[in-house]
Amino acid sequence: MATELRVLDDGAWISVDNQRRVPNSDIWPLAVTDFCGCETAHVVLEAFTDVGVDRDGVSVQAVGQCIDCGTEGALDWLAVGRVRDGAFHPYDPAELRPRLEPGNDIR
């Protein structure tokens, strides 16, 4: 059965199969994405604007701000988890995943 994904409550969270699985307000480190001038941007996700799936990877569009330099911006498809055997496994926001960052052409 297809995984149901949606953004709800003004972008507060990502629903995966009717469960609140990814909240806003976590800080995600970005080493590859050209988000700001910081070597590693630490971006607090203020609100999600879209969610999608590419094969088994679940990614979001979101607006956020680097907590170190204050740069505000939009993230275009940040990977937040994956679906395996029908179950969603969220990524730990604190872990760096350069291969899965927005703007990484390897992906």
Partner: peptide, 9 residues
């Protein structure tokens, strides 16, 4: 705020 609200930071 975060006491109850999904969106608050």
């Amino acid at each position: 705020g975060t006491e109850f609200c999904s969106l608050s930071i």
